[in-house]
Design a protein around this nucleic acid. Structure first.
Ligand SMILES: [Mn+2]
Ligand SMILES: [Mn+2]
Ligand SMILES: [Zn+2]
Ligand SMILES: [Zn+2]
Lengths: 160, 160
DNA sequence: AATTATAATGATAATGATTATTAAATGATA
DNA sequence: TATCATTTAATAATCATTATCATTATAATT
């Protein structure tokens, strides 16, 4: 974690930005919520708990900066807010997401899986791929179980 | 085109909605711009040319309705507005996009390409896939050409 | 056809996320 | 220390989208 922070600090410095206390607080929140998909407002509220004097605009600016530096990826799941997702250490491509249309949960896929597809696209469309966004919409494992239970209870009530 | 409109009309009816003149005008604009990725405002302005009395809220409502019926897909390329993309006739999955980070152009890929990947995801993540969003970010063919020219002219000026 | 109920529309106000502005604080530099 | 650039907090402005509401169109019923 401290290690991770150090690297981000260096990344900032190499683009001649400083790791101010506000930026550090923001990065820490992101590191503590690696698995989550926080909106700017979410981040703001979490940072406030530890550094109450921070302003919302600063959080927006910091997230914007981290996006530029590819420390985070900005993503939109269609709910009206941008969400910020920390890149895994050393990852060159953005990871994938499974969004459940029943409960709204978001699961991550770290595996690439797109190597073959990207090869085809580069060859056939003559497009040089730098990054990707892949989101699957469907039914998560939990919601599948719920639906199974429902179906079974309906069957048994018919049997009566 | 008229054929396509008829089918959409039937889809509306089967969910007990009517194809009002405003909705028809909106659908026609979408059909006339199949390849484009129009924002609500874009659609509004185009509809206004033919049906000047239409209101912006009606366009939003119509696009919302068409999204529900899966006639169009709502997509966000990260520029602050939702864009509406007509589904190809009979397509069950949303098509893919190539977004150029140099010029902003958007190209479409109608081929599925994800069958294998989806099979893996369904098996290994126990997630039932209903739809997907796949966007590649990179450099389009045009911009590659431009960059090549640039590199060559730089080389020749060094050679002098 | 007249009446009533329902759906849809247009105008516009409200909302809410994001961006711009500005004055003050901080930090580096000479 | 004086000077200049960067960053910040507060807050105003912007802009896309949604909500409200009075009016109109359409369908159903008498
Ligand atoms: Mn993620
Ligand atoms: Mn498209
Ligand atoms: Zn679920
Ligand atoms: Zn391009």
């Amino acid at each position: 974690m401290e290690n991770r922070l150090e690297k981000i600090k260096k990344q900032l410095h190499s683009s001649s930005y400083k790791l101010t206390p506000q930026r550090e607080a923001t990065v820490r929140v992101l590191l503590e919520h690696e698995e989550d998909h926080l909106s700017a407002e979410d981040v703001y509220l979490l940072v406030k708990e530890k550094a109450p004097e921070i302003g919302l605009a600063t959080v927006y600016r910091t997230l914007e900066l981290l996006t530029e530096l590819k420390v985070v990826d900005k993503i939109n799941f269609g709910d009206g807010v941008s969400r910020y997702d920390l890149r895994k250490e050393g990852a060159t491509h953005f990871h994938h997401h499974l969004v459940c249309i029943e409960c709204g949960s978001v699961e991550e896929i770290q595996e690439d899986l797109l190597e073959d597809v990207e090869k085809i696209v580069e060859e056939r469309w003559h497009f040089i791929i730098k990054d990707h966004r892949l989101t699957f919409h469907g039914v998560c494992r939990n919601c599948q179980k719920k639906q199974n239970k429902l179906v079974k209870s309906e069957q048994s009530s018919v049997e009566k």
